[in-house]
Design a protein around this nucleic acid. Structure first.
Length: 616
DNA sequence: ACGTGCTGTCATTAT
DNA sequence: TGATAATGACAGCAC
């Protein structure tokens, strides 16, 4: 087969590689907002994390983080990264204000608990004969999370340990309970006290706070009001828990061994003043800046080692409310698939890019192609099959390059190249072309010369070879009609060869244009995906910080409760038990037992092993 | 003169 | 197996 214009392609030139694509990218980014640059993704991430930590840890996050409805809208307001100041001073001011009310609301977590709680804690802690406990032993009551000098890895380990415990508790806590808890009316004590995000590990841990200590204080309303008689353990080694006020305890701790949580073998005592009998206001400790610093340390430690279990948990929990464009049409996989299935990529991207005017304008336009609409055909019919006047068909077939359509693409607005060797953009405007019948002979020739210069090479060749039909027909007719057309005329071998080449080149030209548009579309979608994923990442990071903060607060509260209960225990002689020798343990049936330390440690170790084995 | 972007074309592969 | 689509690579042109 003869290639008439092959000489123009050396084929051995320097490989320019992906220059067209790069230039497309570069050209596109000019029109992109500064944040849209995917090439700065890594730097952006670092900045983002930095901003997040500073924002969340130093300033505290708004309580709306735990509000389900708010979180559903969060993707619409993910510009909060820029206006982080909006969240500033949320909880300090709010906390002071709400302290005056009955309910104290944690500004960061939305957590609410009775204002009496801290007061009672104080009063109770004062009532506890702390002097009866040596300071060293007192330290044992502190959670390791409260120690200020521990390494981030220890903190991470604590986190993972607690996650394991919560995993176990999740087996006992009905999922619906979480929802009920979260969706309960404001008056509901549970929801009022712990209105945390639904279906979160933290939420499952809420049961920890439902441990009843009705007798400890009448205002201990955060605990279950159902004060029932304490199941008395008759074991000789397991002393029944007998609070001094002879009220009972009820808990949903399950079999969680609190001793394992709060009586680690080695404890750093530096944080003893954070929580304990000396603590003037446990709530103040919750909002302590030092604690937030610890959280930041913990976050820093966990950031890299956020294990897959936690990640998947977070993923599951936020799948429902993420609302982000993780749908199939936006996902990278879908993009790759659309790349693979070229015929459907254009339409798929059009469905996925409703938000992008540029992309959708491309897609709605559909695949480009030589126009074979009625206008073209009519013109050609009017001109006759033999009278070859390529200019008419050219106008139509290049109509897809209407500048008004290109104007939809801001980054393509500058595209106005005049490839005179092949097309005549000036001729695209039909207004510039008066009907041939109205032209005088001179101007007709002038026009013909002008249009002659604008003809494509193939059109020139077709004219030179006296091809009796238009290039548009050659290119756009279906195979059958095309063959029919060829059979109608007595064509030489050279003519047939040229016709086939024209058809091949014409189709390939359209294919190339479609291919480039698809490529652009893909780039746009990928950039959008990058932005979405960056937003996702930022949101998850924020939520993680919030969860960690909430978890820490709960730990502190449980620890306070534990201390209160333990400090009120008296033996037969009315003397307090030594924390070094005894520990509280919550049995599966809801009872609370006072058991020897050694036994408690054993059980704690046993329970630590269980979740790890289960994960394997 | 040079770089950039767009377009057409070829060769090749996939459908 | 031929036709067509898709795509990488290259060259030419306009800016």
């Amino acid at each position: 087969m003869t290639r008439l214009d092959r000489s123009s392609h050396s084929g051995g030139g320097p490989a320019k590689g992906s220059r067209p694509l790069n230039s497309l990218l570069a050209g596109h980014r000019v029109a992109q907002p500064p944040s849209a640059s995917g090439s700065r993704a890594s730097v952006q991430d670092i900045d983002l994390i930095d901003i997040l930590w500073r924002q969340d840890i130093d300033l505290g996050a708004g309580r709306e983080v735990f509000d389900y409805s708010h979180r559903q809208k969060e993707q619409d307001v993910d510009k909060e990264l820029q206006d982080g100041a909006e969240q500033e001073d949320t909880w300090p001011g709010e906390g002071a204000e709400v302290l005056a009310r009955n309910l104290l609301v944690d500004g960061e977590t939305g957590e609410s608990f009775p204002a009496q709680f801290p007061a009672d804690i104080s009063s109770l802690t004062e009532a506890v004969p702390s002097e009866s406990e040596p300071p060293g032993l007192q330290n044992n009551l502190l959670s390791p999370l409260l120690t200020g000098t521990e390494s981030p890895f220890d903190l991470e380990q604590q986190w993972q340990d607690l996650m394991s415990i919560m995993e176990m508790q999740a087996m006992e806590v009905n999922t619906s309970t979480s929802e009920i808890l979260y969706n309960a009316p404001p008056g509901d004590p549970l929801s009022t006290n712990y209105s945390l995000a639904p279906n979160t590990p933290i939420n499952q841990n809420v049961s920890l706070h439902q441990a009843s200590l009705g007798g400890c204080s009448q205002d201990f309303s955060i605990f279950s009001p159902e004060v029932e008689s304490l199941p008395v353990a008759s074991s000789s080694t397991l002393l029944p828990l007998v609070p001094s006020n002879s009220t009972s305890l009820n808990s949903t701790f399950g079999s969680t061994n609190l001793a394992g949580l709060f009586f680690p073998p080695q404890l750093n005592g530096t944080a003893n003043d954070t929580v304990g009998p000396d603590l003037p206001d446990p709530l103040g400790g919750l909002l302590d800046e030092a604690m937030l610093d610890e959280i930041s340390l913990m976050d820093l430690a966990i950031e890299e080692g956020f294990n897959s279990v936690q990640a998947s948990q977070l993923e599951e929990e936020f799948d429902s409310d993420s609302g982000l464009s993780l749908d199939s049409s936006h996902s990278p996989s879908s993009l790759s698939s659309s790349e693979g299935s070229s015929s459907s990529s254009s339409s798929s991207s059009s469905s996925s890019s409703a938000s992008s005017s540029a992309s959708s304008s491309f897609s709605e336009e559909g695949a480009v192609g030589y126009s074979s609409d009625s206008e073209t055909l009519d013109l050609e019919e009017a001109e006759g099959a033999v009278g070859y006047q390529p200019e008419y068909s050219k106008f139509c077939r290049m109509s897809y390059q209407d500048p008004s359509q290109l104007s939809c693409l801001p980054y393509l607005e500058h595209v106005g190249h005049n490839h005179t060797y092949n097309m005549a953009p000036s001729a695209l405007d039909s207004a510039d072309l008066p009907p041939p019948s109205t032209l005088k002979k001179g101007s007709k020739e002038k026009q013909a010369d002008f249009l002659d210069k604008q003809m494509s090479r193939d059109e020139h060749r077709a004219r030179a070879m006296k091809i009796p039909f238009t290039n548009d027909k050659i290119i756009n007719l279906p195979v059958e009609e095309f063959n029919e057309l060829l059979s109608k005329y007595q064509l030489s071998e050279a003519q047939l060869s040229l016709i086939r080449d024209i058809r091949r080149r014409g189709k390939n030209k359209m294919a190339a244009q479609n291919c480039r548009k698809r490529k652009l579309d893909t780039i746009l979608n990928l950039e959008r995906d990058v932005e979405d994923l960056q937003r996702d990442k930022a949101r998850l990071l924020r939520e993680k910080v919030e969860f960690l903060r909430s978890l820490r607060q709960m730990k502190q509260k449980v620890q306070s409760l534990y201390q209160e209960v333990f400090g009120r225990l008296r033996d037969e002689n009315g003397r307090p038990y030594s924390p070094s020798q005894y520990a509280l343990q919550y049995a599966g049936d809801g009872s609370v037992l006072l058991i020897p330390r050694t036994l408690a440690d054993q059980q704690a170790r046993r329970q630590e092993r269980k979740p790890k084995d289960r994960r394997k």
